[in-house]
Design a protein around this nucleic acid. Structure first.
Lengths: 230, 230
DNA sequence: CATTGTGAACAGTTTCACAGCC
DNA sequence: GGCTGTGAAACTGTTCACAATG
């Protein structure tokens, strides 16, 4: 699925130059925007052109009122008595999220997780392109993964800067996460996706999203041990 | 780091039989609990025995008041004028999160991401043990990854049931996520960690946590394009 | 006397109900 | 008639200020 999967329907409006400043969304709304986008892209691929807040809410487990409030946050997109035009909403959501354009990625840390991320096809389909990959170990440098040659981290700053890469992905052991983050910041990235279980300190104009895998399992075990029913 | 890293200090209190019902925590609090736990474990490993809400808040980027309110949610753990005893709080957080015991995992989908997860050492250190792994492709079955033999999904239900596995991890393409979820439910798992970009429908007594990787990049791009500064 | 625990004020989020429009 | 957009109400989570206390 995701952006790449087309079938009966015509392709979605081509990504335009993306650059307009969009208003910051509340965290809770942003999380649901990803859900909406995913589902609407699937509907579009199936040739569906229109959907109501009720239908959309039912398949995603949300109330119709919430769907309407959420979508309304990026402007009045719906038609009363009719519903929402799928194509229109997909475009508006992409603009709000920032995926109405493509992005280039630098990976640091070519371990098990790092290599899996580079090979993960879903990223490309969503418009995210790995453009340079780095590791500290000399024996990994020169090897090629999915068409990209692993470079030594010593080359990170000049390479990332030269290629204008905007997003760095950290997949190194926790002790090395902070120094790597500082290299990425020095190289001028605008955002960092951090898979290491470590709290990064970066300047306020660099955005960080943490995706520590252990954290998801902890969420799950809490839900399990705190369940009322069973 | 995580639970396994010991150094100067004595090991933390051994996991006890875990089974008491704990009160459900608000999502936001639970997220911060993982942060606190990580940081407190690191402090313990460095031999620190006591910490104030101010120090803890500073290193994690939170206000002291928030730290106190959060920790107080599992009972009065601190000593006025002194601070919090690291060891005591680690124990209380683990009980609240559910990681005061070990858990067994079943992986479904031995692609790039799936194999990386199985080999990810951090899970074991946190008390999460892969116990069975499955794939649909016959050519993968019989191969062994990190000491575990890949079984065919047809054997999922009896195997997971026989081994009493409580958590299933889905790392298959999105179209197959729902059928796999249904197998895991039939096999009696209590929770599912879902890496596929698909909204799963499961009975209310089965917990689901979604960890779609594309979603994190979308969060990041929104933060970048909606930045006030720069 | 430094530091927690906590009620009360504040901010953010979700739900509700219905007016407005196609 | 069906469905969106939206103010107001209800709820949840965060910040503040200070009394309580080891």
């Amino acid at each position: 699925m995701a952006a790449g999967a087309s079938s009966t329907a015509s392709p979605l409006p081509a990504p335009r130059g993306g650059g307009a400043v969009v208003p910051r969304l509340p965290r809770a709304v942003l999380e649901r925007f990803s859900l909406y986008l995913r589902e609407l892209e699937a509907l579009h691929a199936r040739g569906v052109t229109t959907v109501s807040s009720q239908e959309l809410g039912r398949t995603l487990g949300l109330t119709p009122a919430q769907v309407r409030k959420d979508l309304n946050a990026v402007g009045p997109l719906g038609a009363r008595g009719v519903g929402y035009r799928v194509e229109l909403v997909v475009g508006a959501l992409r603009r709000a999220i920032g995926t109405d354009r493509t992005w280039t990625l630098a990976l640091v840390g070519v371990g098990h997780l790092g290599s899996a991320l580079v090979r993960h096809a879903g990223f490309r389909e969503q418009g995210f392109y790995f453009t340079a990959i780095f590791d500290r170990l000399p024996e990994l440098c020169g090897r090629s993964i999915d068409g990209l040659v692993v470079q030594h981290v010593d080359e990170l700053v000049p390479t990332v800067r030269r290629l204008g890469i905007e997003i760095g992905i950290i997949a190194v052991p926790p002790e090395q996460a902070q120094p790597v983050a500082e290299l990425l910041v020095a190289a001028g990235v605008k955002g960092i996706l951090n898979f290491a279980p470590a709290a990064l300190e970066v300047p306020p104009d660099v955005q960080v999203v943490n995706a520590d895998l252990g954290f998801f399992l902890e969420q799950l075990t809490h839900h399990i041990v705190s369940m009322p029913r069973r």
